[in-house]
């Protein structure tokens, strides 16, 4: 499985470089408080990373909260034969 993952990773990195090179022109962003200029490819990558991280964080918080609740419930109701 590991060699396949490496191959896929290399393909995606290569695709990222190509897309970055093809979309190197700068774009203006007005975020109300400040304005900034970013390459189009970097903006694309940034959006992807931010979305991915937010999704992962939400899932992690959900699972760990449920587990903590379950543990508390187990401790509150000791087993009686």
């Amino acid at each position: 499985m590991r060699p396949l993952a490496i191959v896929i990773l290399v393909i995606f990195v290569a695709a990222g470089i190509v897309l970055g090179a093809l979309n190197a022109d700068l774009v203006d962003y007005d975020l109300a408080f400040f304005r900034m200029q970013l390459p189009k490819g970097a903006a694309l990558l940034g959006a992807m990373v931010i979305g991915w991280l937010l999704g992962g964080l939400t899932a992690w918080v959900g699972v760990s909260t449920r587990q903590r609740r379950q543990l508390r419930a187990d401790q509150k109701s000791p087993l009686t034969p």
Partner: peptide
């Protein structure tokens, strides 16, 4: 990306 990240984390 949010959905993909959520799924991967799960």
């Amino acid at each position: 990306a949010f959905v993909l990240g959520w799924w991967a984390s799960r």
